[in-house]
Design a protein around this nucleic acid. Structure first.
Lengths: 262, 262
DNA sequence: CAGTGGTCTAGACCACATC
DNA sequence: ATGTGGTCTAGACCACTGA
């Protein structure tokens, strides 16, 4: 007789431990993972906060430790939580105290220095319609309202990146004003703290093209010089397209770094 | 009394199961992984071949199943082996029957089609000195001998990529001749089959620059048009820099795709 | 010191692939 | 039918963290 009244039971296939059913259903650890993600999304544990320890979670679900460990291990590998032996398991945050801030920034200076956390100059932050490209990236309509934010990122006084970010108003109402007022270094931190949106995955398409007039003046490079353009679509934990941004970069002294081992 | 005579014991900390020692040493699963990698490198199981099943490996090391599973799981996540339930565990291969061939190719057509396995036209394959850039990528000397291979990759009759590959003679003697004669689609397959080198990790630096005269004529684009240049360093399983290549691409209809969730 | 996650064991049953 | 990896359990001990 264990205390099992206020359990958080997995969403599907609730009975199983004793009965031999559940042939077509997900493995238990996957159900637990799904449910834990749901609990993170619901705000039960906010970014930066600690989850209960494994034993407590295991008891809560009436499952074995190993099963819970496997669920959490997958969440770790997906960057959703981070764990430290002796301390606990924490919801990932893009915020100041967060684990691996700016982890999606691939632009590096040729000496290896990464573009992360450097000062950011806000050039514009307005309300607008999405337009064709952003609409395609966000999988919405070209006439849908978005916040458009244009920023210049600098390293040691030199302009390096022009970032133009589109945030769907549907997900982040009023973001253009919030961003203009706060001028934060990390947009994802704002999405976390003000809208409860966790960015956990991005998809980037990289191309080469000639710089526009505006870009060449901002980046202090010759007119029509070749620049790298990164189109990033950011996905929230629940899989929605939350942000589309273009990153334009002169690659005379910088490059886009990608390391693969899978 | 178990049969433990002809065991493959882990390289360090050989006694442990019964004695309580081994405080500063690697976890057992890490030792097993290291040793299994050593056995793959030694050619005990060649690319495409099947490893013994978990129980046999576990018995061989005198360890528990779970420990071996964890070791192999890490090897899977590093792309070194692949496993299928009911079939077994196989050493990864870039060859024709291999698991995820061309998995390092990030260039996609804008409609999503990936550059993988398409016909390749060999333009040159010669013996030469490395030169400064390749030497930096291979971490050797500019005067060291290399095989230089220049290839044009096409999709549906249209030229898409110019690939220039540098292979250190020290690792792959005579490669330029071998490649010219075989003109294979995948260089990594040749490295596997002829030199026993497994490419398991690559590092790519992406830049934008103007096309050279030669490139613009090969790719049938205007002179000095902006092109994407990918510099790839390929690492062998043992961590050596085996190949350095540049991939030059017109990104009018193609892009370099990178998906991240960590 | 108590609490955390990390490692490891020795079993059990299952779905799946192959013959 | 046999063999494979995948899941799951119920314990044990360890190293590390923080108060």
């Amino acid at each position: 007789m264990c205390a099992k009244e206020q359990n958080h039971s997995p969403p599907t296939d609730p009975s199983r431990a004793a009965s031999g059913l559940g042939p077509t259903s997900l493995p238990l650890y996957a159900q637990v993972k799904k449910h834990l993600i749901h609990r993170v999304l619901s705000g039960e544990w906010k970014p930066g906060e600690r989850l209960p320890n494994e034993a407590q979670i295991a008891e809560g679900y009436g499952l074995s430790l190993g099963t819970i460990r496997k669920a959490i291990r997958e969440m770790v590998s997906e960057g959703l939580v981070a764990r430290w032996p002796g301390r606990g398991t924490f919801v990932t945050s893009h915020g100041p105290g967060g684990h691996r801030p700016f982890r999606f920034n691939c632009v590096h200076r040729d000496d290896g220095e990464r573009m992360a956390g450097q000062p950011t100059r806000y050039l514009d932050s307005r309300h607008d319609r999405a337009g064709e490209r952003a609409a395609a990236g966000l999988a919405t309509d070209a006439d849908d309202p978005v916040a458009v934010v244009v920023r210049l990122r600098e390293l040691e006084g030199q302009p390096v990146l022009v970032e133009t970010t589109y945030l769907a108003e549907a997900h982040c109402p009023g973001a253009h004003k919030l961003l203009w007022e706060g001028q934060p270094n990390s947009i994802y931190q704002i999405l976390e703290q003000n809208y409860g949106i966790l960015v956990t995955r991005v998809e980037e398409k990289v191309r080469a093209r000639a710089a526009t007039e505006n870009e060449s003046s901002l980046l202090e490079i010759p007119a029509s010089a070749p620049v790298l353009e990164v189109e990033r679509t950011a996905f929230s934990l629940s899989g929605e397209r939350v942000e589309w941004r273009t990153i334009v970069c002169d690659t005379e002294q910088y490059h886009y770094l990608n390391q693969q081992n899978r």
